[in-house]
Every structure is written in structure tokens, then in C-alpha cells.
């Protein structure tokens, strides 16, 4: 018998058409969706992943993120995205994804002769 087991990695939450979400339907119906929160700090230029919140809609997600993750002046800008829209790389692909880069040190810009006038490099 062919049993098809699908594994979902972090963030890759299926919309529908799969056994997992159907069997949990009665439970998940009452739960608000999960949102990933990205915060830009005062110093930072980029939004960094801060964590996640549950919320019924995007506006509520931003406000929940404000209440949960910026209480101690951590940020001046918030992005939220529903967790199901984030697609993650598969840890099993790590070998072919990341290993090949390990012996290619020439990709680091460390083989240049810097002129003496340039400081702080």
C-alpha cells in the first residue's frame, strides 16, 4: 500500500488539499492564522525576523506585533506576512545547497591589495 506522507518544514503550511489540514479542520477553524513578524530597529536598515503572532487579519497582526515585539522600543517599522506564504528550503538539501561553496574561498573579496590610504577595511 502506498502511504503518502508529506512533511512540512517551517513556514510551509499548506492551504488545503491535504490530509493534515482536513483532519484538523474543526480545531484550526477556530484558530487565527499565524503571521511572521519583521521589525526594523532604529539603527537598522533592514527588517529582521522577530517572531510570530496569531491574528485574524493583517491589521490585527501588525497591532499584535506592535504589542508583543515593540514594547521596549525595539522598532520603528513592522512587516507581517502570513506564515503560509513563506516557503522554506529543505534541510535535506543542505549538502547540495551549501556545501559546494565551502571550498571557494576566492569568492570572498580578500585577494585584493588595498592602497595604504584606505582605512577601516
Amino acid at each position: 500500500m502506498n502511504i503518502n506522507i508529506r512533511k512540512f518544514y517551517y513556514g510551509d503550511i499548506p492551504e488545503e488539499n491535504n490530509v493534515t489540514s482536513l483532519s484538523q479542520n474543526s480545531k484550526t477553524e477556530k484558530e487565527w492564522p499565524l503571521w511572521e513578524v519583521f521589525i526594523r530597529s532604529k539603527q537598522g536598515l533592514d527588517h529582521k525576523h522577530a517572531g510570530s503572532v496569531h491574528a485574524a487579519d493583517a491589521q490585527m497582526a501588525i497591532e499584535n506585533a506592535r504589542d508583543v515585539y515593540t514594547r521596549r522600543q525595539e522598532g520603528i517599522s513592522i512587516w507581517v506576512v502570513e506564515s503560509k506564504h513563506i516557503h522554506a528550503s529543505n534541510p535535506e538539501d543542505a549538502d547540495m545547497f551549501y556545501e559546494p561553496a565551502s571550498d571557494k574561498v576566492y569568492r570572498h573579496p580578500t585577494f585584493y591589495d588595498l592602497p595604504d590610504e584606505i582605512k577601516h577595511m
Binding site: W32, H54, N64, D67, V68, R71
Partner: peptide
């Protein structure tokens, strides 16, 4: 009613 709103009303 939910952790996030618990924090909101407490704030």
C-alpha cells in the same frame, strides 16, 4: 481571549 490580545489589553 488569546495571548496576543492579553498582551494588548495589558499594555
Amino acid at each position: 481571549p488569546i495571548l496576543e490580545q492579553d498582551i494588548a489589553i495589558t499594555n
